[in-house]
Amino acid sequence: MTYKLISNGKTLKGETTTEAVDAATAEKVFKQYANDNGVDGEWTYDDATKTFTVTE
């Protein structure tokens, strides 16, 4: 399945996607992506749209 990340960081804003077997796997990928880009904030997940959002 395709999962989307919306980043509302102070230094990184935008969207990216990943293919993953489940939401937990996608979350690990996205949290590593955010960490690699210096984004640390509040996370939410919408199962209906398969979208994670991180806001700093």
Score class of each variant (00 low, 15 high):
residue 1 M to H: 15
residue 2 T to P: 05
residue 2 T to F: 07
residue 2 T to I: 14
residue 3 Y to L: 02
residue 3 Y to N: 03
residue 3 Y to M: 02
residue 4 K to Q: 05
residue 4 K to R: 12
residue 5 L to N: 01
residue 5 L to R: 00
residue 5 L to H: 01
residue 7 S to I: 15
residue 7 S to W: 15
residue 7 S to R: 05
residue 7 S to G: 06
residue 8 N to R: 08
residue 8 N to A: 09
residue 8 N to W: 13
residue 9 G to L: 14
residue 9 G to T: 15
residue 9 G to R: 04
residue 9 G to E: 04
residue 9 G to M: 12
residue 10 K to G: 12
residue 10 K to S: 11
residue 10 K to Q: 11
residue 10 K to L: 13
residue 11 T to F: 13
residue 11 T to E: 09
residue 11 T to R: 07
residue 12 L to T: 08
residue 12 L to F: 15
residue 12 L to Q: 08
residue 12 L to A: 08
residue 12 L to M: 11
residue 12 L to S: 08
residue 14 G to T: 14
residue 14 G to Q: 13
residue 14 G to R: 12
residue 14 G to F: 15
residue 14 G to E: 13
residue 14 G to D: 08
residue 15 E to T: 12
residue 15 E to K: 07
residue 16 T to R: 11
residue 16 T to Q: 09
residue 16 T to A: 10
residue 16 T to C: 14
residue 17 T to D: 04
residue 17 T to Q: 10
residue 18 T to E: 04
residue 18 T to Q: 05
residue 18 T to L: 14
residue 18 T to M: 11
residue 19 E to T: 14
residue 19 E to Q: 14
residue 19 E to K: 13
residue 20 A to K: 00
residue 20 A to P: 01
residue 20 A to F: 04
residue 21 V to C: 13
residue 21 V to S: 12
residue 22 D to Y: 03
residue 22 D to S: 07
residue 22 D to F: 03
residue 22 D to Q: 02
residue 23 A to L: 07
residue 23 A to I: 07
residue 23 A to G: 04
residue 23 A to F: 11
residue 23 A to S: 09
residue 24 A to L: 09
residue 24 A to Q: 12
residue 24 A to S: 10
residue 25 T to K: 05
residue 25 T to M: 11
residue 26 A to E: 00
residue 26 A to S: 01
residue 26 A to D: 00
residue 27 E to W: 15
residue 27 E to G: 06
residue 28 K to P: 01
residue 28 K to M: 11
residue 29 V to I: 15
residue 29 V to A: 08
residue 29 V to L: 12
residue 29 V to W: 14
residue 30 F to A: 00
residue 30 F to Y: 01
residue 30 F to M: 02
residue 31 K to D: 01
residue 31 K to N: 03
residue 32 Q to C: 06
residue 33 Y to D: 02
residue 33 Y to G: 01
residue 33 Y to C: 04
residue 33 Y to L: 11
residue 33 Y to R: 03
residue 34 A to D: 01
residue 34 A to W: 07
residue 35 N to W: 14
residue 35 N to E: 14
residue 35 N to Y: 14
residue 35 N to K: 15
residue 36 D to V: 09
residue 36 D to T: 08
residue 37 N to A: 10
residue 39 V to L: 14
residue 40 D to F: 15
residue 40 D to I: 14
residue 41 G to F: 04
residue 41 G to W: 05
residue 41 G to D: 01
residue 42 E to S: 10
residue 42 E to P: 03
residue 42 E to H: 12
residue 43 W to S: 00
residue 44 T to N: 08
residue 44 T to S: 13
residue 44 T to D: 09
residue 44 T to K: 09
residue 44 T to C: 10
residue 45 Y to W: 02
residue 45 Y to E: 01
residue 46 D to L: 03
residue 46 D to R: 03
residue 47 D to W: 07
residue 47 D to R: 06
residue 47 D to I: 08
residue 48 A to W: 07
residue 49 T to P: 00
residue 49 T to F: 04
residue 49 T to I: 06
residue 50 K to C: 06
residue 50 K to Y: 08
residue 50 K to E: 02
residue 50 K to V: 02
residue 51 T to N: 01
residue 51 T to P: 00
residue 52 F to Q: 01
residue 52 F to P: 01
residue 52 F to V: 00
residue 52 F to H: 01
residue 53 T to H: 07
residue 54 V to Q: 01
residue 54 V to F: 14
residue 55 T to H: 10
residue 55 T to Q: 07
residue 55 T to A: 06
residue 56 E to M: 08
